[in-house]
Design a protein around this nucleic acid. Structure first.
Lengths: 215, 215, 215, 215
DNA sequence: GATGAATGAGGATTCATTCAT
DNA sequence: GATGAATGAATCCTCATTCAT
């Protein structure tokens, strides 16, 4: 019996890594097409063409257009947050330095990368996929804001920060990140901005405000 | 019956105002439907039903679905900016007060109103309508940021503000407004935030930072 | 207001009878196509072409291909049975005459007519539409066999029939009808049979058997 | 390992019987799937899975889905008829006994067996495969009816039967067999019938009729 | 021979747009 | 002007068939 098994094992089941690679190619292509057209007007023909596969092949990897979108969305969720949580919180450095690290991460690892594109896509399509909006809120938004709040609380506790606005509204810290994300995809060609400089200016402003002894 | 017909013929040609009213009803219905579904998945059947007209009637007012969207977008552009430009710049008040007035306007006249909905729609569909993004940038974004920059420059010139970040990146001032706009439509049901309080906190932070003598 | 209503009533809502006529044209075309190809391989393109309408028009009358099939099936159910029940049972004639009338009806009003085609279609597709098989069994089969059993019982009660096989298995009476139904669509071109003569022969045989004093 | 490989190479070319066995497995699986879904909606994926082979393997045995269906149909044709012809005609017994033997065969060797399933499938798909209908008519229907006619003629010639309806329409003899075949697959779950008893009742009726001296 | 991933033609369904009334 | 039935192009998805391994 072992012999037979061996004799038949002539198709060495396409390796898992090859499978992953092709799925990734499809996801990459899908991201491009979804970003260009939005979910509803994206054509799977285009995704297939861009991924270099036939239309039907997509269905060997995802069961439907919607599932393709969701797989794409999921692929951009979670990893980044866990990474930055560890990076930032583990360090025993002043809150200001933590914020700097956070912004550097945002600038280099999100804005202008595939991750950023996925966030753009999610923002755009969230209302069509309420469940996904929920997941995204739970996995990314809540945790991201929680991280910011933790940093802010530490800063206050240590006397680095004199005011608590950031504890109450951590959204204020990343708001310019959101502007950068949208600006680059919508208006950059019309009026380029230096995102790095903007984030630095924002950080500078925030630091002045938070450390202001007059408050 | 012939009489009646005749009587109808004598009715003065439907007045321009009636025509405008019907167009407005169609635009209002379209905004609702476009907001719920996005441009691509919005059905003109639904727009017609909501506007209380037949599907064909839409084509008496706009030549196509895309034109409907563009008419809608245009209808929300320009007016507000001109209004706030006059309101804010005309007053000979401190820059801080001007910013306060601006935020109040943003909060009361944009967020939570039809104007805000149009902005949401534009943000979502801008990549499908590059020309519209261009118009929007020229008519709204540029002028809005120009207004902010003018206020900031005045503040600096008058010695009210000691730092120039806002002159260089007026985007930083409205970033929380953008957060509020998106948050309310995407995450408000999951985690409600007090937009007014957030904007106030933002203004407080900015003021501290801008006035900080240590810079 | 009455004036306005009248003024607008310029599209006299396509009459109900026109609507019915077009639906009937679609159903007729669908019957042909379904009979030729079976449900699964029937193309709505063909149905539309044969009905002289565009593909999309079908969907103004039925919501799906399956619904089209079901509408078709329903259209052939019920009416005939009620008719023949009245015709046959109301007459105060010998059981033999009732059977004759039944067979005449079967021959003239079912076999070779649209009704017969629908039965053929149902027989063929019943396993794909179990619910429809159930309806068909309840509305047609049960009632038809019940009618036969009633006739047989009357015949026995009145002393016309001496044996009760038909009471126990009324299916035996219509079995040749089923043969005729299938034969005409499958083998008639290869080996034509005279359906009328066959049914007469069947009736003659049955009468001899049922009246046979030797049993 | 090289040794094992080599050992395999020395294995005598897969025997013809093994080939036949695998073909049979495929045909068996195909019958199940075709019966469940009809030809058009049967998926070769399912056939392969049920046969325990890969999809591609099917094409090593039959050149197409249609050929698979035809091979299946052919496999159920002919054998039975030859068997029953010999069994029935060879015996020098009364015509009534011959009919009894025929019905017993029908009941035990066709209805409720794989043979019966193939007939059901043929009835259902005959209009899609006119050529097959032709073969089936020639190999099964004609011969079966011929057999019946021969029996009937003998019965008449020997004075056993006094009427010739069965000579003219041998279909009348197997009509209840057709009813049984279809009933069991379509309505048995809704209203079970005792097929054996029905066939017996049919035989009894026929005998009374045929022997009836009054005709 | 056997496998099963890949292919792409084919068809159901949707919906913007037209036009006879 | 207003209507809404009709149209048919466009696109998702399925599955028979192929072929590299």
């Amino acid at each position: 019996m072992a012999t037979k098994r061996h004799a038949f094992k002539n198709t060495p089941a396409r390796s898992e890594s090859e499978r992953r690679a092709k799925l990734q190619a499809i996801l990459d292509a899908a991201l491009d097409v979804f970003l260009d057209n939005g979910f509803a007007e994206a054509r799977l023909d285009d995704v297939a063409a861009r991924a270099g596969v036939a239309k039907g092949t997509i269905y060997l990897y995802v069961p439907s257009k919607q599932a393709l979108f969701e797989a794409l969305a999921q692929s951009g969720i979670g990893g980044a947050i866990a990474t930055i949580e560890q990076k930032v919180l583990a360090l025993d450095i002043p809150a200001e330095e933590q914020l700097k690290a956070l912004f550097a991460f945002l600038h280099q690892e999100v804005l202008g990368t595939r991750r950023g594109d996925i966030v753009r896509l999610l923002l755009r399509e969230a209302s069509r996929f309420p469940e996904l909006a929920e997941i995204y809120h739970r996995e990314v938004i809540s945790r991201g804001l929680g991280l910011l709040r933790t940093i802010a609380e530490r800063g206050v506790a240590r006397g680095e920060f004199r005011s608590d606005e950031l504890v109450r509204f951590p959204q204020l810290a990343i708001a310019p990140g959101l502007v950068a994300l949208l600006w680059t995809s919508l208006f950059q060609r019309l009026e380029p901005i230096d995102v790095g400089a903007m984030l630095e200016a924002h950080l500078a402003l925030m630091m002045k405000a938070l450390k202001d002894p007059s408050s």
